[in-house]
């Protein structure tokens, strides 16, 4: 168990870091594309036909690529005021495990559904760049798979914590201070 958790830890630390670099690069690229677009239109009175489509796609990819990081570090928003008082009660360990199990099963389903969507879309094309839509949708199975890996590791840690309470660090519940504002 220990060895498996350590292994998953290495895997996920590496994949989330690489995915995070890619996502950050995409934000750079999005900014570049839109700025160049405004410059061309306003200063040179000319436009590209594909900047909107490209930057939109990059934004969706960016979100999916940071999905595993958000889950790994428990940064997704949750409503935790109802459980705040009993957060340290032993029963919450089972609750946490249950939630993570549901999330993991859902993610596995999502990989499968995303894969189906990607395969079905392979004969369609985007309007502006005429890219095969399958490539665009590829981020779904990939993104869900990366989150599922993260979820699997959290699952292992949560199971281990039932037998050895407090042995593994894991943010059971999401954060209440991430999004919004």
């Amino acid at each position: 168990m220990d060895a498996l958790i350590r292994f998953m830890d290495v895997v996920n630390r590496t994949t989330t870091r690489i995915a995070g670099y890619l996502a950050t690069g995409l934000l750079f690229a999005m900014l570049g594309v839109v700025i160049v677009h405004v410059f061309y239109r306003y200063v040179l009175n000319d436009s590209f036909g594909w900047t909107e489509e490209l930057s939109r796609t990059m934004m969706v990819w960016m979100a999916f690529l940071y999905f595993p990081t958000a889950h790994r570090y428990g940064m997704n928003v949750s409503l935790d005021i109802f459980i705040a008082a009993i957060q340290d009660h032993p029963i919450m360990r089972y609750f946490g495990l249950l939630i993570e199990l549901a999330v993991f099963v859902m993610l596995c389903g999502a990989i499968w559904l995303g894969w189906g969507l990607m395969s079905r879309a392979s004969s369609s094309f985007t309007l502006a760049l005429q890219l095969p839509l399958g490539y665009v949708y590829a981020i779904m199975p990939v993104g869900f798979a990366l989150v599922a890996l993260v979820s699997f590791e959290r699952l292992l840690r949560l199971v281990a914590n039932i037998f050895y309470p407090g042995r593994y660090k894991v943010n059971v519940f999401g954060s209440s201070t991430a999004a919004g504002g």
Binding site: A23, F28, M62, A63, L65, Y66, T69, N76, A179, G180
Partner: peptide, 20 residues
């Protein structure tokens, strides 16, 4: 600068996924 972009991308991703 890289840190700032990375932080902004992560925060955005969390909200965008919520929107989706």
């Amino acid at each position: 600068l890289f840190e700032v972009f990375s932080k902004a991308a992560l925060k955005s991703a969390i909200i965008l996924l919520l929107v989706g």
